[in-house]
Design a protein around this nucleic acid. Structure first.
Lengths: 168, 168
DNA sequence: ATTTATGCAAATCCTTTGCAAATCT
DNA sequence: AGATTTGCAAAGGATTTGCATAAAT
């Protein structure tokens, strides 16, 4: 995330793949087929996802290497450590999103369709730091999720309300 | 305690116990010994807790009635529905706190000692509503958790850093 | 040649559920 | 009496772990 704000450093020019390899080497860990495939797959598109989706997509396919569930979990955890992914819990399960090279943002969670929407607001971090300072708390991050019903679902509810009978 | 924030309504005069009984009756549910014990126990002190703690404290004691784990879970869920408790997930497990008659607030989570600290800030809700309006999102609530290291743990770290050798 | 990583199966942890017995109204 | 609740044991779902084999340095 912050790398896009620290222009001029080495990090900004590295792809997620390269950044992860750097991280692995710095820890004496190995660059394996499955770690490569996972990073490639995860950073192919910017979306929220969970361990189960990855296992479905990479765990039972013809192309090798296949990636097993334990490896998915182990690698996700490394990617979080490496600062490439951010993890958070929604409804008892872990959801991940890109962190590396992606600007700071927060979320709105629609309790009807279960979608996560992103937004960013500069004031929030300021407010956060102000509060923390007041308590002598050293901030490493925050999680702000607005829960409610998104525009789309609200519109759908309106529709339903207007009809005399629900035909479904 | 916090009842003083909704002056003038009927609710303010009801204790959590009474409020829960009202809720149960409105749904044709029964006022049982274990539900009574749970509410009494939970609202005895204002703290964060989880299902496991309750089971430990009420599940294996001499005083009857004892409360089983399933009943703890079932009742917690009713208390959330009744608006007496608020539930949220931290580190994969559900944590509960008083909601009824307690003023809106947010949290700081210390990743060292794992404690939750409360704070409240008026600007936050305003910021939230402003953002939501912008997206046509209907707000039902939010979750704001600042993560980091609390003053106490920071002090402890300082101590350790100063010593020539860690004797533990 | 070593050492780390993987995949399998099984274990864990938290939470939920089916069902007979106990408890409310 | 009649319906809801309870507790038990067992099931569930997500995540983690032990260990033998495979892969990377």
């Amino acid at each position: 995330m912050a790398d896009s704000f620290t222009l001029g450093t080495v990090e900004v020019s590295l792809s997620p793949q390269e950044r992860f390899e750097e991280f692995l080497q710095s820890r004496g860990k190995r660059i394996t087929q499955q770690r490569r495939v996972l990073v490639e797959h995860i950073f192919r598109r910017h979306e929220h996802f969970d361990a189960d989706e990855l296992t479905d997509e990479l765990g039972r396919r013809d192309i090798s290497p296949r990636v097993s569930r334990p490896t998915v979990y182990r690698t996700l955890s490394e990617l979080v450590d490496a600062g490439l992914l951010r993890k958070f819990e929604i409804g008892g399960r872990s959801v991940y999103e890109h962190d590396y090279g992606y600007p700071q943002h927060d979320h709105m969670h629609c309790q009807t369709c279960n979608k996560l929407y992103e937004f960013s607001n500069d004031e929030l971090a300021q407010l956060r730091d102000r509060v923390a300072r007041e308590y002598g708390f050293r901030v490493t991050g925050h999680r702000f999720i607005i829960t409610g019903i998104c525009q789309k679902c609200r519109a759908a509810q309106q529709q339903r309300r207007k009809r005399p009978v629900d035909l479904v």
